[in-house]
């Protein structure tokens, strides 16, 4: 619920909200980032007529090579609340057998790091690799530093067809190709 509220408050259109949380770290780059605790990934989709649904997952990993931060989300375990819809999503549209993950890569130095007890909120540009297609995307994020941990929330939008994903449809109802994914996690400097 809190993430839903955050997205709404941030004015992110549910129909085209893809949000990915980005974590931050010191500008000198001497510290690598490591995820601690649970993470959650959401996606929001809408359809015609007047339908919307969400998918949720928790398979999130972070890789920090000192220059770039890469967030990898596993697509095979995302659950839309209906087994048949999951099957359609995985097999027919995202084709997870061939592309089981999606990756977002951002340049570390582009991110703003808050001080302890403070929050930073900004946007940056990253590269999203989805369904075998790589494209630049704009990413909004919010980071709060609390007890030495970075609590990260973010959002970005994408259009599925831009990544070669077929527009989903089922007995007269079609899903808007503009969808969104959101991710939240807690990270720590090592």
């Amino acid at each position: 619920m809190s993430l839903r509220k955050t997205l709404v408050q941030a004015g992110i259109p549910v129909s085209i909200a893809l949000s990915i949380a980005i974590c931050s770290w010191p500008d000198d780059g001497h510290a690598a980032l490591k995820r601690v605790g649970d993470s959650k990934v959401f996606f929001f989709a809408t359809g015609t007529p007047a339908m919307k649904f969400t998918g949720t997952g928790s398979d999130v990993t972070i890789a920090d090579d000192g220059k770039n931060l890469t967030i990898t989300v596993g697509l095979t375990t995302i659950d839309t609340g209906m087994e048949l819809r999951n099957t359609h999503m995985r097999d027919k549209y995202l084709q997870t057998a061939k592309w089981p993950t999606t990756k977002l890569t951002v340049v570390k130095s582009d991110l703003k790091l808050p001080a302890e007890g403070a929050k930073s909120k900004s946007t940056t540009t990253g590269t999203l690799d989805l369904h075998g297609v790589q494209k630049k995307v704009k990413v909004g994020y919010e980071i709060e530093k609390r007890d030495g941990n970075y609590v990260v929330r973010g959002a970005l939008n994408l259009v599925m067809t831009d990544y070669g994903v077929e527009t989903p449809g089922y007995v007269g109802v079609s899903v808007d190709p503009a969808v969104g994914v959101a991710l939240t996690f807690v990270a720590k400097d090592l």
């Binding site: 007047a50 339908m51 919307k52 649904f53 089922y170 007995v171």
Partner: peptide, 29 residues
């Protein structure tokens, strides 16, 4: 299930009454 609006599953835009093919499928699933 996220079905707040009625038109996805019903012909009547405010709900109830005959089901659309999608409504029948969701009713089953």
């Amino acid at each position: 299930h996220g079905y707040g609006a009625c038109t996805t599953c019903h012909l009547d835009p405010s709900g109830a009454g005959v089901l659309t093919p999608y409504g029948r499928a969701q009713g089953d699933l």
